[in-house]
Every structure is written in structure tokens, then in C-alpha cells.
């Protein structure tokens, strides 16, 4: 048998010791539940799940504030949870904290949803703050637990609610649908067969917006011949919310 070279013996010992240290360290330091469910510490899942919740959930609010909830559910705010406006209330619900949930009363809060923004879905009720009763608190006119759209054009808004919503907050709010649209009687019973007509000439807009029209002084006037060139009015302006730029 060939003799093992002398150099290899201490090296072998050294490597075995190092491997041994690694094995022992693994035994000592790898967390107990590591690898039970996968390549991770199984107890970490429970630790994440143990985090306390700050938002109680609207069902908890019902226990005490059922009356408000019922009223809200009949309004256009039915889809809102209480904590959307009032903030996290778990501490209030459990009694851990004496601090009451916030009651936002300023215009800024309502504007987070209802301020005009071109990226919001068409038909979502939006206002231009500087034109919509500037300076007044929203809650002065609107009950946030039972907000209602301005009435009017009741017949049309039964189907065209989105458009009605939008028009209601625009400077065209006082116009009737029939001021611009021609609506045959049968449109109400057979809407797809007998269609309402949209304006087909700029004359319709010109009734108010042309120079020399008899409309009130606050209505913007333009030179019908010059303004907009070859484009028609509604190619740039949205008649149901003319403040919005298309």
C-alpha cells in the first residue's frame, strides 16, 4: 500500500473539523420550524398573522351605529365603508382608545373623490370646487350619510343616471334634456327602436353661446364662425360637463 503523503493528514483533519463546525452550527442555529412547510420558518406565518388590525371593518360599526348604517345603505354611499371617511376605528370599537374616529368636515376630504379629475370615470359625480358654492362646507347642503343627486329631468335620469349626475354639477345644470335633444314620445317605451336625437348642428349651442344671443350675461359668448375652426362644438367640449376638457 502506498503511504499517504504527510501533507494531506493535517489538511484532512482541518477540513473535517470545519465541516463538523458547519454541521453543529446548523443543529444549533437553524430555527426549529424552518423547513416544516417549505424553505422558510413556519412560525413566521403565524407571526405575520398576529399583527393587530387598525381597521375594524364596517360590521363592527353596525353594532352601535346601525341607524346611520341603514340610512347610508339607501343612499349613493351604500358602497362606502364607515372607515373610508372616519379612519381606522378598531381601537375605538374595542374601547382601547378614548379617541373618537375623525369626522371630516372640510371641503378637501369630499374632493378626494368628488373633485373634478380628468382621469375619473365618466359619470362619476364630480364638481369644480371653485365654481360649486366656493368656500361653503359640503355638509352644509349634503348629508354625507344620505347624499342625493339634484333632482330634475326625472324621466330621463331613470335610465341616464350617470349623465344626469354629471350635468347636475355642471354649469348646464339648469338646462332640460329637451333643450338640446329631441325626444319622441315612444322613446320612453321603446328606447332602442325610437331613439332620442342628438343635436346635429352648432346652432343648438349657438342659441346661448353665439354673440348676440339672449342668454344671461354669465354665459360664455364666442364667434360661431371663427371659434374652433372646422371642429364641431362637441368635439372639444363635453356638453354634459362643459367645464371638463375632453
Amino acid at each position: 500500500m502506498r503511504k499517504i503523503p504527510q501533507q494531506l493528514i493535517p489538511l484532512a483533519v482541518l477540513f473535517i473539523v470545519l465541516l463538523g463546525v458547519l454541521v453543529v452550527a446548523r443543529q444549533l442555529f437553524v430555527p426549529k420550524t424552518f423547513g416544516d412547510l417549505g424553505h422558510y420558518r413556519a412560525t413566521a406565518v403565524d407571526e405575520v398573522a398576529a399583527q393587530p388590525a387598525a381597521y375594524a371593518g364596517y360590521r363592527v360599526c353596525l353594532d352601535c351605529h346601525d341607524d346611520i348604517y341603514q340610512r347610508k345603505q339607501l343612499s349613493s354611499h351604500a358602497g362606502l365603508a364607515c372607515e373610508t371617511c372616519h379612519g381606522a376605528a378598531a381601537a375605538h370599537a374595542t374601547g382601547e382608545s378614548d379617541q373618537l374616529p375623525t369626522v371630516p368636515r372640510g371641503r378637501d376630504h369630499c374632493q378626494l373623490c368628488h373633485g373634478y379629475n380628468s382621469a375619473r370615470p365618466t359619470g362619476f359625480p364630480q364638481i369644480l370646487s371653485n365654481m360649486h358654492n366656493p368656500g361653503e362646507a359640503c355638509v352644509k347642503c349634503h348629508d354625507s350619510h344620505s347624499p342625493r343627486m339634484a333632482k330634475g329631468n326625472g324621466e330621463c335620469s331613470a335610465c341616464h343616471q350617470m349623465i344626469a349626475n354629471q350635468k347636475a354639477v355642471s354649469s348646464h345644470m339648469s338646462l332640460d334634456c329637451t333643450d338640446c335633444h329631441t325626444v319622441p314620445i315612444d322613446h320612453a317605451t321603446q328606447p332602442r327602436v325610437v331613439q332620442a336625437l342628438k343635436p346635429n348642428s352648432e346652432e343648438t349651442c349657438g342659441k346661448c353661446h353665439a354673440r348676440g344671443s339672449s342668454a344671461g350675461a354669465e354665459v360664455a359668448r364666442i364667434d360661431m364662425a371663427e371659434h374652433g375652426g372646422r371642429y364641431l362644438c362637441w368635439e372639444c367640449h363635453y356638453p354634459h360637463l362643459p367645464e371638463a376638457k375632453l
Binding site: A53, A54, Y55, G57, Y58, H77, G79, L80, A81, E83, T84, C113, F124
Partner: peptide, 11 residues
């Protein structure tokens, strides 16, 4: 319970 973002989403 739903996630907090789902809970408060108004739409």
C-alpha cells in the same frame, strides 16, 4: 376580514 384597501375602497 378583507384587506384594509378593499375595506375602504368606496367604489
Amino acid at each position: 376580514q378583507p384587506p384594509a384597501c378593499v375595506e375602504v375602497c368606496p367604489t
